[in-house]
């Protein structure tokens, strides 16, 4: 990931529909994979439990479906990524080959984490998300274009308006989503605000 051009103005890839509201980050990556001190290897475990039936055999989860192998645009529904703040969730999706998410809505910590990885989470209307999922399911080889610069998602002849917080959109388009650098450049201002906060100087027993 580190070597790629950081600009995310236009992402093209085949789609992968995941039809479900309120998919939580425990579902995306179970907690037992949080016991590693690096993010390496998480991609193989994305949706690990959700991909199995009660007997532990692979079920019809789209991540098991050979038609979607190599797909990179994950199309979801409402409140995707709710629950735990674990960055492991977008890390696992990214390492499983997902380069953009399109859906009705995303949980806030999750979408913020996506931005810090340069992974767009773009919103479309509920009806548009459902239609995109239908289009992709009917034609898994269809290329989906997530055009953050033009603010639309295109699939075949269809176009859908996309939205996302403007700051996130700009950062992804410009390739400036790695926030640490710009935060660091304001050290003098940081120290000024710090010294203005009453509690920074208070004495405590400790």
């Amino acid at each position: 990931m580190a070597n790629k051009d950081p600009k995310r103005g236009l992402i093209k890839g085949r789609g992968l529909p995941l039809r479900e509201n309120d998919v939580d980050t425990d579902r995306i990556i179970p907690a037992r994979y949080l016991k590693w001190v690096t993010f390496d290897g998480l991609g193989a475990h994305a949706f690990e439990d959700a991909r199995k039936d009660a007997k532990g055999q692979p079920n019809d989860h789209p991540f098991n479906d050979p038609r979607y192998k190599g797909a990179s645009v994950l199309i979801v529904n409402r409140n995707f990524g709710c629950g735990s703040s674990r960055e492991h969730a977008p890390q696992a999706l990214s390492r499983a080959g997902i380069e953009a998410l399109v859906g009705e809505s995303f949980a806030e910590i999750f979408s913020g984490n996506c931005v810090t990885l340069g992974l767009p989470a773009a919103r479309v209307s509920a009806a548009d998300a459902a239609e995109l999922q239908d289009l992709v399911a009917a034609n898994p080889s269809l290329v989906v274009e997530v055009d953050l610069e033009g603010r639309e998602v295109r699939a075949g002849a269809k176009k859908y308006a996309l939205t996302m917080p403007e700051a996130q959109r700009q950062a992804l388009v410009a390739g400036t989503w790695d926030s640490t650098g710009s935060l660091l450049s304001n050290e003098a201002k940081i120290r000024k605000i710090a010294s203005s906060l009453p509690y920074m100087a208070w004495k405590t027993a400790g």
Partner: peptide
């Protein structure tokens, strides 16, 4: 509020968040 791990790095390095 809760944050992700990259943001934990931001707080460590700058004591601030975007």
């Amino acid at each position: 509020f809760g944050i992700g791990t990259t943001q934990v790095c931001d707080v460590l390095a700058t004591q601030t968040l975007a």
